[in-house]
Write a protein that binds this DNA or RNA. Sequence first.
DNA 1: CAATAGATCATCT
DNA 2: GATGATCTATTGC
Length: 189
Amino acid sequence: MSAPLPRAFYSRPAIEVARALLGTVLVHGTTSGRIVETEAYLGREDRAAHSWRGMTPRTRVLFGESGHAYVYLIYGMYECLNVVAEGVGSPGCVLIRAVEPLEGIPRMRRRRPGARGIEDLANGPGKLTLALGITRRHNGADFTRGPLTIHAPQRQEPVQIAVSPRIGIRHCADWPLRFFIEGNRYVSR
DNA sequence: CAATAGATCATCT
DNA sequence: GATGATCTATTGC
């Protein structure tokens, strides 16, 4: 496997990082998946972002160095994985919404007994964290070091990127900040 | 098929 | 004390 993507990859505006992450490979232990769906969250001007009110104990890592993980609990039940973008003091980030399972599929199935097929294993923010075994313990983890890493694709295939409004938010509900690989079977419903 | 309810808790008001 | 960047099961057409 190639080296993890360097810090510079993440030190760009959240929207750019969200697009660039499509097609890259998220790795945790023996499991991995290709990122096929992301959402950008901007910061102070974006009321849908956790960081829009400024720094709190929870959102501390969003204001730190880029290339780290922001993992939080949602609806008392599920964890969501974000990649911190931009730079110190600029809390833009990217929510990973879906991955296409690559390695460790039997293990993922065990972690997600309810899933019907491969398509349902990680096609949503809460599902992918379960499938890959990502929890709040990974909050603040450095993607350039592990145990969570992100890698460039082996072969850079041309991907057609589609754009839509973000899912499941009330504020800024019409901003076109969701990005996904057009026609991919592993994108969330 | 679409719509809805219920699970469940850290975080912030 | 209310809310939420979700998922699943169940109900109703």
